[in-house]
Design a protein around this nucleic acid. Structure first.
Lengths: 120, 120
DNA sequence: TTAATATATGTACAGTTGTTCAATTATTCA
DNA sequence: TGAATAATTGAACAACTGTACATATATTAA
């Protein structure tokens, strides 16, 4: 492995470590999907929506009231959560009821809260 | 609970559900911290750094080589990860070695990957 | 001290994101 | 059908974020 194989602007220090780590790195696609998933959880409005839906299935209007925000912004965020497969919905007349569509979310919340409490 | 207690622009539909959910919602501060934590994981560069550090402790230069990016951008991201208590470092001469400082990260990665694989 | 190297940091800029407002769709009921 | 209501969607704008470049700091060795 010659120096010019490296794409960055620095001298290589531990070729063996770099090589070993490189061989274990998952595909770029995997990282994109993983980061995308965390990014969706990385917004206060969305975490509050998800926590609320973990307590009760609710319509858009209910969620807007719980969060004290407009229906429009809630609907925009629900769209993001829906398109990423984190929540699902069911229509009943004019109303649309939302609920969690992913067991992992609850698990992630627990680990996330553990992390936060550990850091206090 | 009268209608004007609600801060949003919509008619209340299920007062009991809203009230119940409201009573269970954690503080704004908790949500801010939780979202902040996920936001930090919600970037491809940072997830790659964390995955790499989960394989081997490494100096900035090594990480830059593994990721094919400049030392400057890696250092900026390491600063974010350090300040949020996700990685820690140890200095050895001119070099600074970084490592994970949080067991939760590994756990979150596993749950995140499960989610992604489940959704394919 | 001076030169070389590893890392950190400040600034600037392009790209992204969340909210608001306005308009639209879908459904119910008179 | 037409009015009312729930939700969605599009556009615009401010705020934020990641990277690159330039510069600064820190350490080593000559």
């Amino acid at each position: 492995m010659s120096k010019n194989e490296f794409t960055c602007d620095c001298n290589i220090i531990h070729e063996d470590i770099v090589r070993d780590t490189l061989s274990k790195m998952p595909s770029e696609d995997s990282f994109n999907k993983l980061a995308e998933f965390f990014k969706i959880l990385g917004d206060t409005t969305r975490t509050r929506i998800l926590f609320a839906l973990d307590q009760n299935e609710m319509c858009v209007c209910d969620i807007a009231n719980v969060l004290g925000m407009t229906k429009s912004s809630i609907s925009h965020q629900l769209g993001i959560l829906r398109r990423s497969g984190i929540v699902k919905c069911r229509k009943e007349g004019k109303e649309v009821y939302y609920m969690l569509d992913d067991d992992h979310v609850k698990e992630l919340f627990e680990v996330g809260i553990e992390h936060i409490e550990h850091k206090i």
